[in-house]
Design a protein around this nucleic acid. Structure first.
Lengths: 245, 245
DNA sequence: CCCTGTTTTTTTGGTTGACAAATACTAGCA
DNA sequence: TGCTAGTATTTGTCAACCAAAAAAACAGGG
């Protein structure tokens, strides 16, 4: 059985990963400066443009700040906001972030978002939501179905009227799907179609409190499955380790 | 009176801004592909490495995806999560995000974070918080003082035990300070030292409910000042426009 | 001795030109 | 019809070079 080989990494990606790991595991602390570009190029045996692209990438993510001139160079910056960037899955792996953290946020945020959506969603939003559920109903591919049910949550996030919540929901779902797909429990459907139908009814009836309550129950159920999944994963990892030792 | 000239923009920044604007104002829609690198270099009259650095930057922010080969190139991706990246101030300017949105999130999140902090903060965290307040008390420079009082909120975010909340708080404060500093009302101090003292007492007494209540009042007060500031800004902008026309 | 303007050095910023590798399309062949 | 080899397009990578900014070192005058 062959392992799926994710499309091969570019050099700049490798360099960026190298530096990011050094920052995340603590060998590079906040305020430290990296070697200059030519030196980095020499050490990592790549050309300077590659180094520069990697640094731009890290700069865009806010991990480093770059200054010109003597005593300039790339400096490690605040990494507090890192959790909102694309590396949530990496952070779980590095034990910086746990499923509990995510579950906690989701349990608090999502019901509120559904409450707002019940108050603020336009008629078009409600039609869109209904269409998603219909599409999901007839979908047979488990992966596609999972994407569609996730799409329902994203659409509600958009419909709630506050782009910050929408962004946060999107990030949380991105991570959730990434986490689930690394474990590949192909048959597991986190979201129940019936739950979504009932919630949509509450939204249509413009009943914020009911929407809040139903969303809370729904999210709780998803969270329980996430935790169970994590437990299973940890057990599996432990057994695998025992088997190898 | 001289206008403060923010440090001058690099070419790659200019290119990235150009493309970002095109995406945000809708002339480039999701799924569209940009011209290839050499063509972009020709159109914008810069070299290809500059274009590549700009594209890397945008890629890191999740605005575009890049593929190799025929029919490859830079494609505009989902921009839903954009609000969590560093361009919050840009988005306000582009009328995609309003102060109300931010205020709404802050009003909901921060009290919860303070509640968690009352339950989870370590003794060291509490000492750190006390030190920040002491330092702030003796600070005379308004800008420095504003940074320090902001630092209090960041530290509470860290102390609440959930890095996602910490990240979110950091982003919100980054934006708040950026917004306030563009208006440059030098004498305005959003945060009251006394409020922070009282809240810290609640944290020390491990009283989550009181911490929640006090934080809510405190945040409400800050939010009111933010809205007043926005109103003043809009009025000013309108008058300026009338003056020019 | 201190202050001030100039020069030097270090480091990122930017350009040019060339070649390698990946991908999609196409034409040719069985 | 279906597969295969080639071809065009586009990003990926390299090398060498000069420009510009910023800090440090230096020089000159009070």
């Amino acid at each position: 059985m062959l392992k799926a080989v994710g499309k091969q990494e570019n050099l700049y990606e490798a360099v960026a990963s190298e530096i990011r790991e050094a920052i995340l595991n603590g060998s590079l602390k906040m305020g430290d400066t990296l070697p200059n570009e030519t030196e980095l190029a020499r050490q990592l045996a790549v050309s300077r443009p590659v180094i520069r692209e990697a640094l731009r990438y890290l700069q865009a993510q806010g991990l480093i700040k770059i200054n010109r001139g003597t005593k300039g160079g790339a400096m490690v910056g605040r990494i507090d906001h890192l959790f909102l960037l694309e590396s949530m899955a990496d952070l779980i792996r590095l034990r910086q972030l746990t499923v509990d953290h995510l579950v906690q946020v989701r349990q608090f945020i999502e019901p509120e978002v559904f409450r707002l959506a019940a108050a603020n969603a336009t008629d078009e939003d409600l039609i869109d939501l209904e269409n998603i559920l219909d599409e999901s109903y007839y979908e047979v591919n488990p992966d596609e179905k999972r994407d569609l049910t996730g799409q329902f949550h994203r659409e509600v996030g958009r419909a709630c009227g506050n782009p910050i919540y929408a962004a946060l929901i999107n990030r949380i779902l991105d991570f959730t799907l990434a986490f689930v797909s690394t474990l590949k429990p192909t048959h597991l459907i986190l979201h129940k179609d019936e739950d979504h139908r009932i919630i949509l009814e509450a939204l249509k009836n413009r009943d914020p409190d009911l929407a809040w309550k139903l969303a809370l129950e729904h999210v709780n159920q998803i969270n329980n499955q996430m935790k169970a999944l994590e437990t299973a994963w940890l057990t599996m990892a432990k057994e695998e380790k025992a088997g190898n030792g």
